[in-house]
């Protein structure tokens, strides 16, 4: 699990251009959107692409993302359960 959390953090930094951030600086349980990491709606769409590209997970409805993108830990749990690659 920790390994997946770390892997996802690196992918977030790369795909969302979180320049200069290190995985250690992303709090495992902090919200990805709003006050936490400060991501926005375009980042959410880009995260959907990331899930499909790297893990074969298709999210048809961006609204589903709300729960999944709650925090890096929540994201890792979802990916762990639903990954196809």
């Amino acid at each position: 699990m920790n390994e997946l959390v770390n892997e996802l953090k690196l992918q977030l930094i790369d795909a969302l251009n979180l320049d200069g951030m290190t995985p250690e600086e992303i709090d495992d349980n902090a919200p990805l959107f709003g006050d936490g990491l400060g991501l926005d709606s375009i980042d959410a769409l880009e995260l959907i692409v990331l899930l499909e590209k790297n893990y074969g997970i298709k999210l048809a409805n961006p609204a589903e993302g709300k729960e999944i993108f709650r925090s890096v830990v929540a994201l890792a749990e979802y990916v762990g359960k639903n990954r196809k690659k």
Binding site: A15, I42, L45, E46, V49, K53
Partner: peptide, 9 residues
């Protein structure tokens, strides 16, 4: 085929 919304915008 992974069209990128962050690039498209």
């Amino acid at each position: 085929w992974f069209p990128s919304p962050a690039v498209f915008v």
